[in-house]
Amino acid sequence: MKNRIVRMLAVAGLGLGLLAAPAQAAGLQENAEEHAFSFEGPFGQFDRAQLQRGWEVFRQVCSSCHSLNYLRFRNLAEPGGPEFTVEQAKAFASQYDITDGPDENGEMFTRPGRLSDAFPAPYPNEQAAKAANNGAAPPDLSLIVKGREGWYYPWYISPVLKLFKGNGGPEYVRSLLSGYTDPPHGEEREGLNYNPYFPGHWIAMPPPLSDDAVEYKDGTPATVKQMATDVAAFLAWVAMPKMEERKRIGLMTMLYLGLFTLLMYLVKRAIWSRVEH
């Protein structure tokens, strides 16, 4: 049903597409697998339990190679996110050693993390990240959901579909993490892995997830698909931590402005009814 409405709107809105963002030429990439995330649409919100599970996946799996530079531990307890308690967020922070200083003797020192600290990066710099990963530095994941696209449609329909489906960033992350397959024709490339969702299909990152790589506290079975979905949702929140506030203020603004517009129309009509025009 929802899909049919989207499709109808897409066709009706074709003309609008002329106005829109440029279409990408189709490259060596599959469209991401569709998935109805809870945060889609003008009223969509994050699923707290899902973000909490996604945080576990990130913390226990992704964070061994990937940084998350724009996330601070306090964000974990802020409204509109996973909404851990402040105590839980403090406990997470204290599990990490943070380099601080210099102290009064001019020495750098390490101390347990605090709420105000950024999530510590696994490597001290890009060169170290490259050296440890076969020459390909794992990208920071703070904005990965906004910085990647999941859909590659023809130019005449792409702007309309993207208006309703977004860029497909979360779907891309989910598909990539759960989409490793054997390469066609048994081809092999040194140090690279085959993934149809990756641009160019050959990715340096080995398959990061395997069933039960993480033990979920809420008892959800930790399948690869489940973990990929949860961490994609978590990274979507990290990329747009103010999404819920944005949609809430948006709704109030649109309602207020809509009413104001209606009143202005009536004012305009009343004034102009006095004259032939």
Binding site: P42, P139, L143, G147, E149, K162, L163, K247, G250, M254
Partner: peptide, 19 residues
């Protein structure tokens, strides 16, 4: 204009500019 600001704020931009 505000429908874009609140509901599709980076629709007209390019994903790659978040890198």
């Amino acid at each position: 204009y505000l429908a874009f600001v609140f509901y599709s704020p980076w629709y007209m931009g390019h994903a790659i500019n978040f890198v």
